[in-house]
Simulated scan of single mutants.
Amino acid sequence: MKALFRAAFALALVAGPVAAFAAELTSPVGTWKTIDDKTGEAKALVQITETSGKLEGKILKVIKSDDGPNPVCKACDGERKDKPVEGMTILWGLSKDGDEWNGGQILDPKNGKIYKAKMSLDDGGRKLNVRGYIGFSLMGRSQVWQRQE
């Protein structure tokens, strides 16, 4: 009986993290590398969290900036004006709607503009299709972000 218990415990230790990681791939919660839709270059690492069913994304690290090291949001208005891009919340208010998350907004720190946003997972949860748009989603830009482990 003790041997059976030990075997079950050992299996749980191995399978537990695998099951947790598999479950994570059904949600955008995690860390993502943003890929510029025009240049194909990695630009930043964004951490997406969920609070009360709403997603929020914050820039953890700027990988490449046209404005040099430690960029600030020069074009932003209000409380974000001239604040460091690293640590800035750029995505907020998205909630699950079927296979998508929408109803939120996304900030482009390069131009300071805020757009409506929607996103969906692709490639087994390893890619995130992020769309920012004005009015309705046909008029906007899309990026594909890569999940970081």
Rank of each mutant, 00 (worst) to 15 (best):
T26W: 14
G112F: 13
E86N: 12
A20Q: 09
K64I: 02
K54A: 12
G103T: 03
L107K: 03
K33D: 14
K54E: 14
L55Y: 01
A3W: 14
R131P: 04
L91E: 04
L45C: 00
S27K: 07
K81V: 07
K127Y: 01
C76A: 05
D36L: 10
N102Q: 09
G140N: 03
C73S: 11
A15Q: 01
E50M: 07
W145Y: 12
S142W: 02
A12D: 00
G68N: 05
P17V: 00
V46D: 09
D66G: 11
Q47Y: 13
K64Q: 12
L91K: 10
N129F: 09
D108L: 08
A75C: 05
Y133V: 01
R6L: 15
M139E: 14
R141I: 04
A10P: 09
D108V: 09
E24Y: 11
A22I: 02
C76Y: 02
W92D: 07
M139T: 13
N111R: 03
L55P: 01
M139K: 11
K116M: 01
I35T: 06
L60K: 14
I134R: 01
D122G: 07
A3V: 14
T89A: 02
A8I: 15
A20V: 14
V46M: 12
Y133C: 03
D99H: 14
G87W: 11
K96F: 14
G103H: 07
A23L: 10
T34Y: 05
T51P: 00
